[in-house]
Design a protein around this nucleic acid. Structure first.
Lengths: 204, 204
DNA sequence: GACCGCCTTGGTCGACTGCCCAACTACACG
DNA sequence: CGTGTAGTTGGGCAGTCGACCAAGGCGGTC
């Protein structure tokens, strides 16, 4: 076994995990090399050896979590056989998050950090854009009008719900689902002509 | 004129303004006393003289901006004569914000900071709760079913749209409005009986 | 055995942090 | 005019920050 190289990768993973936790607990700009190293149980200098800078560590850690969540949610959403069911599955997947949990906070922190870091912004836009495109494709199958606009608004609404849930615990899936279902059913289902209008909203 | 006391209040206001700007530019936890003092054009020690701590300055600055925005939006929304018109007015008021502007970022930063500061959390919940209650009252007048749930989801969706707009410029009011209008029209209009159900959601 | 390169350690550097305080100014009041 | 007080200044303290680096441990390859 390549024990040295193996240990190196383990240290990398532990630093990424520690960084992701700390972003949620303390906030993006409050995470320091020593803080992450201490939680990972390694020396402080290793952050710069493995990642070069604090920002690189934070970006890689955050994108890793976000990609994992997206990869998890993708297959689950493919089971939906209607817009209402899609909303239910989406909210059910999110009902495990309280709004003050590490994952929810990490998402919002990353969005804000992406506002100030062009590289992170591009990487994050790629991940979220792919997720949005997948939802739009499902909505188009269901005959929802203007699926890209609907998907963009739906994902934004879901993130907003998670953000508000931290302050308003009543914002549960059970309370939100009927409203969001109406959102898609009211705008969608033009009756006979699907008029998907995939042009509007570009392609991402 | 009370020149000394007057100048004192001006320094306070300039510190609050500088802090609000810096929260948006650098992030909540990255704002320092010297940073705010330099932008306000005053000595660093004044932050602790006027506010006691950095957190107190940040909290007061953020809540001041948020209260001002809420006070501005309130009367405008009162002109709405239907749920669709309410959404239009709400989004029209927000179309001036790009998602990367100081006000939008300050909102999200404050939400995140409230997650970690119980005092700030309570104060913020009071402001947002009042705004939500007002919107719920209007929705109830329009005959929308479960107005509190609808209002909570609507405000969360609007904040989510502002958060996503920073990464997706296509998320304009023109693209979002029809989807959110459907959200209220589909769920609302129970027909005759208003059944406002004011109990749900309490009164915050 | 000697050698090599990845990984790790512990420490140092200048800069910055929140908070505090003695000294100072300028105005208000008696 | 003297005195009190709110406001202000600049410096100082102890601690933390990101980044860097010389030194050494370690396993793998000859």
């Amino acid at each position: 076994m390549a024990t040295t190289a193996e240990r190196g990768r383990q240290v990398r993973q532990r630093l990424l995990r520690a960084a992701a936790e700390l972003i949620a607990e303390r906030g993006w700009t409050a995470v320091s090399t020593r803080m992450a190293a201490e939680r990972a149980g390694v020396a402080a200098g290793l952050v710069h050896y493995h990642f070069g800078s604090v920002q690189a560590l934070l970006g890689e850690a955050a994108l890793g979590v976000i990609r994992a969540v997206a990869a998890d949610a993708g297959p689950a959403l493919r089971r939906a056989r209607g817009p209402g069911e899609l909303v239910d599955l989406l909210l059910a997947a999110l009902d495990g998050f309280s709004g003050t949990d590490p994952v929810s906070l990490l998402f919002t922190e990353t969005y804000l950090a992406a506002t100030r870091d062009p590289v992170l912004r591009a990487a994050l836009a790629e991940v979220t854009g792919a997720a949005r495109a997948e939802i739009a494709a499902r909505l188009a199958e269901f005959g929802v009008a203007a699926p890209h606009r609907a998907a963009a608004t739906l994902t934004a609404a879901v993130d907003g719900v998670m953000l508000h849930r931290a302050l308003d615990p009543d914002l549960t899936a059970a309370n939100v689902a009927p409203v969001l279902r109406a959102m898609l059913q009211g705008a969608g289902r033009t009756g006979s002509a699907p008029q998907t209008d995939s042009r509007a909203g570009g392609r991402g």
